[in-house]
C-alpha cells in the first residue's frame, strides 16, 4: 500500500570514517523515521539492512560521506556518497566473500565480503558509481508496492 504522505520527505546524515562507536546511527535514525511513517515492517527491514551495510562501508573504507534519503509514497531512495578510495573492480567486489578489508576490520566483525551483495539483495534498484582515488556513490531504491 503506498504511503499516505504528500510529496517527498528527505533528509541527510553525515558519516565519519573510522568511527565505529557511532557506526549505524544514521541507519537506525532512518529506520525510526520509516516506522513513524507507518511503512510496512518487511520494507523497513530491507531498507534498513541495505542502508546499514552502505553506512558501514563508509565507516570502514572512507574518510567521510553522506547518506541522503528520499521517501515518497511509492518508495524509499537512499544515496550514499563517500570520499573513499573507490572500488577497483566492481564485478569482483559484488561477489559474495570478496573483500579488501584489513585484518583489524575483520576482527570487528566486518569486511567479510557480504556488504555489497547484501545491499543488492535488499533493494529493488541498485546502482554503484565509483572512481578510484575519489570515492563511491551507491544509490538504492526500495519500492513500496
Amino acid at each position: 500500500m503506498p504511503l499516505n504522505i504528500d510529496g517527498c520527505i528527505e533528509g541527510s546524515y553525515q558519516l565519519i570514517g573510522g568511527n565505529f562507536a557511532t557506526a549505524g546511527e544514521a541507519s537506525t535514525c532512518l529506520k525510526l523515521k520509516l516506522t513513524e511513517l507507518g511503512v510496512a515492517e518487511t520494507i523497513i527491514r530491507r531498507a534498513s539492512i541495505a542502508t546499514f551495510e552502505a553506512e558501514m562501508n563508509v565507516i570502514i573504507y572512507a574518510a567521510a560521506g553522506w547518506l541522503h534519503y528520499y521517501i515518497t509514497p511509492h518508495g524509499i531512495k537512499i544515496r550514499i556518497e563517500d570520499m573513499g578510495p573507490g572500488i577497483e573492480d566492481i564485478e569482483l567486489a559484488m561477489q559474495e566473500g570478496f573483500s579488501t578489508a584489513p585484518e583489524w576490520v575483520r576482527e570487528l566483525g566486518w569486511g567479510a565480503g557480504m556488504g555489497l551483495p547484501n545491499m543488492k539483495k535488499n533493494s529493488d534498484l541498485f546502482k554503484i558509481d565509483t572512481v578510484v582515488g575519489e570515492g563511491t556513490t551507491v544509490e538504492m531504491v526500495i519500492n513500496i508496492p
Binding site: 565505529f20 557511532t22 557506526a23 549505524g24 537506525t28 529506520k31 527491514r45 546499514f52 570487528l108 566483525g109
Partner: peptide, 17 residues
C-alpha cells in the same frame, strides 16, 4: 550468540531484528 561486544553489535541486532 557472538564473541563481539562492541556497540555496533547492538545496532546490527536492531537492524536485523
Amino acid at each position: 550468540i557472538t564473541g563481539l561486544t562492541q556497540p555496533h553489535v547492538i545496532r546490527t541486532a536492531e537492524i536485523a531484528g
